[in-house]
Design a protein around this nucleic acid. Structure first.
Lengths: 336, 336
DNA sequence: CTGAAAGCGCTAACAC
DNA sequence: GTGTTAGCGCTTTCAG
């Protein structure tokens, strides 16, 4: 399959009666180089006429840039987050003419991780880990190879630099406070088993309880697995058997939010009449269920956009930017 | 930011005491070229020792290939589908060392659509439209420029070649038949206003009704917009006011499935006791609600994978493959 | 202000 | 079997 027109800057130069260099100068707005207006116009006309498009591969070759960023995520990434973040990343990169190269985080030995290979073979100039689990080993390795990367995640990875996350934990206080203002007596928690000490959701929740004069009752805390059925069982069991019964639940993630609602439906518990529910996280789906689920919405698009800015800055200047914490928002829908 | 090692095939050649060409031959397993085992080994050793990775940009430059495929989708693509398709595409491309370049379908004039620009500037070698709306104008333009592209969608675009879709329509018959076997008297339909004559869901549904001896009752057909609230209103209104009332609903998409369930919850209609529901389409979310929603599951991963194969074939051989129709599956969960 | 020429890392004739 | 060499399309000194 041959490429159609394939007109090069050489063709443009010939057509305009100038040299290739001049074309390049004009195209890249090289500073310190002044081009006579009529020359510029001639070149511009030639470009139009020939429908010329600079070959980015060749450009990348010369500049030793792939003009592309690897976005790595886990397989089966929770759909709740990913697309919106990707949109932000895309737009952020687009402004500087970088493109999105989607990769997955799966490998046996770190040396032959896909994203490392891609970097080594010059296919990407840097990496954004988008809600992927990044191990200390990985970070160490990347640092040692001085591969530019940025991590976007709900909570800080501990790296401290080149990292985008949100302040959603702050809102847990607000949620508890909101529950209290509604006269809630017993607040339950449903969330995943913390996979690392960095995940502060449960701790913050407990603190919030205490600071609002609630007791911390372990039987009102459900820590679930990846298995939806098991989680449901755990939640329904808590809902039925605990004493006292909760009249509010904080769900630590979108999935747990959905499953809490599901559990209530199964037990015929009325939301928000019998029990109020708020989920941490964003999802379009919160509007597709009854009642619409209140939540702490993450600034997903902005997180992606910011991550894009960061990685480009990192690549350009070797600049290591601080941790960037973006504001989330407590949105009250009908479930609370 | 300088690149770390940046060792080239020239370095490998020097290290192994051979020429660059030999290195290239070995790396690419060029047919018709025999290499002495010890030479090969020496080169392989040198590669290991120097930690050499071929520069794909340079390679692409020589081969006039970007080694990358543009995946275009609509902004705000429904998360229901996209990630899984993407996974299939990725894996399909990966096998041949092509990568995924994510693009959005948004432009004023087709000539400066992002995907056209990307193609023209050699950043992508072909395009996969993944659940993006592709207009006739677009197809015409792409064909006239002989840009390789493949369309993956639920229903045929009408192009007839270079296209991946599913046989989910066939299952609509099965669903109606299933409803009948359960003694259902009145089947309603909830789906989006058909945006093109290519969308045969409603027609097929009507045919299925007739062929199973049901009457087609217009008041049991709800055609909704993109606005979730409006859709809910329309469905609840149908549920409450139609005479006779439906005791089953076929929802034409995941979103309409979710909204039908929501409407029932709002009206306190018991599923599946009072009404049975089946949705066309796939979503992880069907398991996160009560009751889990029966559905016609699309082979999303396979669709992506197939699309990847197709586009590569198209690029390599200029081969235009036929329409590929993959099998979907009627999965009965608890809602029906 | 503009042009000539070198070279990025790789592949593919064509030599030997 | 393996080496020589000529570019791919672009940017960028360095001359003029």
């Amino acid at each position: 399959m041959k490429r159609k027109g394939s007109v090069s800057s050489k063709d443009v130069a010939r057509e305009a009666g100038v040299s290739q260099a001049t074309v390049s100068y004009i195209l890249n707005d090289v500073k310190g180089v002044k081009i006579r207006p009529e020359t510029r116009q001639a070149v511009l006309d030639a470009i139009k006429k020939l429908n010329y498009h600079p070959n980015q591969i060749a450009r990348g070759m010369k500049l030793k840039r792939a003009m592309s960023i690897g976005i790595v995520t886990d397989r089966n990434v929770t759909n709740f987050y990913f697309m919106k973040v990707l949109e932000g990343i895309r737009d952020g990169l687009q402004e500087r003419n970088y493109s999105v190269n989607l990769l997955y985080n799966k490998y046996d030995s770190i040396e032959d991780a896909e994203f490392i290979k891609y970097y080594n073979s010059n296919r990407i100039d840097g990496i954004i880990f988008a809600f992927a689990s990044v191990s200390d080993e990985e970070m160490e390795y990347m640092d040692s190879m001085s591969i530019p990367y940025v991590i976007v995640s709900t909570h800080p990875s501990g790296r401290g630099i080149g990292e985008v996350c949100t302040d959603h934990l702050n809102h847990i206080q607000n949620v508890v406070s909101y529950f209290k203002s509604k006269g809630v007596k017993n607040i339950a928690y449903a969330g995943p088993v913390p996979r690392s000490a960095k995940d502060r959701r449960l701790d913050v929740f407990k603190d919030a309880l205490v600071s609002h004069g609630y007791d911390v009752k372990d039987e009102l805390i459900v820590l679930g697995t990846f298995d939806n059925n098991e989680v449901c069982k755990a939640i329904t069991s808590m809902l039925e058997n605990s004493d006292p019964k909760p009249d509010a639940v904080l769900a630590a993630s979108p999935r747990f939010g959905m499953l809490t609602v599901k559990s209530c439906h199964m037990l015929n518990i009325k939301i928000p009449h019998d029990i109020r529910i708020v989920a941490v996280g964003s999802s379009k789906f919160f509007d597709l269920i009854h009642p619409p689920l209140s939540s702490i919405e993450l600034p997903l698009y902005d997180m992606g956009f910011k991550a894009a800015e960061m990685i480009l800055k990192n690549i350009d200047e070797g600049a290591v930017e601080e941790l960037s914490v973006l504001a989330s928002e407590f949105i009250i829908r009908e479930s609370s």
